[in-house]
Design a protein around this nucleic acid. Sequence first.
DNA 1: ACTATTTATCTGCTTTAATAAATAAATGTA
DNA 2: TACATTTATTTATTAAAGCAGATAAATAGT
Lengths: 195, 195
Amino acid sequence: MDLQAEIGKRLKQARTAKALSQAALAKLAGVPQSHISKIENTGVDLRLSSLTELARALDLELMLVPRKVVPAARSLIRQAQPTPISLTKLALRDDLAKLEKLTDSVVREHASSKNAARLKSRIHDLLRVEISPSALGAVRALNEQLEALKKDQNIQRMNAVMQDVDRLRNKFAHLHPDATEEGPRPAYSLEDDDG
Amino acid sequence: MDLQAEIGKRLKQARTAKALSQAALAKLAGVPQSHISKIENTGVDLRLSSLTELARALDLELMLVPRKVVPAARSLIRQAQPTPISLTKLALRDDLAKLEKLTDSVVREHASSKNAARLKSRIHDLLRVEISPSALGAVRALNEQLEALKKDQNIQRMNAVMQDVDRLRNKFAHLHPDATEEGPRPAYSLEDDDG
DNA sequence: ACTATTTATCTGCTTTAATAAATAAATGTA
DNA sequence: TACATTTATTTATTAAAGCAGATAAATAGT
């Protein structure tokens, strides 16, 4: 990949990381939106002045670094980025929120069903447990099953879901034996427990 | 100072540090010499491609660094530079070489003078001692005196110089008592004794 | 489906870096 | 001083970024 494309990619990454649209960045950096699109997609042989304006707007600074220092500098930059695990944690949060919503939908659609009420109870038990980001896939699978249940309540599928819920809950309840005994502890947290 | 000028200055510094002429760098980087002159002196709003070619030729790399990481990165870069003390050591070497030359000149011009012969002997004693870079100023002052002696031998000035030479030698001979007893040990060395 | 937002693409014009040389001026050395 | 090397300045031309908008196409949300 050539440098222009690389810089363009880096700028796009930084922009999206700050949840800015191209138009918003255009305003901040004093560069037309159409130009930003080109820079991000086809690579442009930017002038220093344009690059530094864009960088400034994205809280970046252009530096000339001695080649032998580059690995160390890269390492510094990497440390300052959100880690993949943090991103997975964010994704897990989203999917757990979705799980709760889908459960409510299923219960609402099948209000008279005892099974539905039981399912809801199971799901809520699960949401009270601290779930590791490694369970992202399993949570997603549950969500898919619930989507299907929403459309068509099937007793067998519902039982299968409840079993999966129980299995998942048991997996993480064992890791935290106090979890079931404490009060309403949040099932997930955004706090950084790296330390 | 604006960024273009700053980059130009940085590039000049890197070039001279590598003892490259503008023409030599021009060849390495594939940029005309005339352009390099302009970049270094008036600042040019360079294109990314040009800047990276110049940087590459100077063992530098362009990086986009998050603002909060910049101080740390600067620190890394500073560590990778020759330290002021190393530069002072180089300067001392130059001035000691000059001292030796000037002495020879003075002696040559006043060949029949006993004082000149004595001075030469004193200077050679001094050059056999390990002199610290902190003595750079004193060595320079001696050189100035010798420049004056070259033009006009003055008995009083010569005596003053000899006293200064003795004083300087005594200062560093005390730090290394073995220096006067060992064989012809070099008076100075470029080796890095930081470790 | 409809609407709002975002991004990609296009047009026409201006500016300036880049290109290719040449040479004047400055600096360094013997 | 003479000569070699280095740097600064100049000329003419070309390419492409930059500027100013406008709008088509894609995406996201309800």
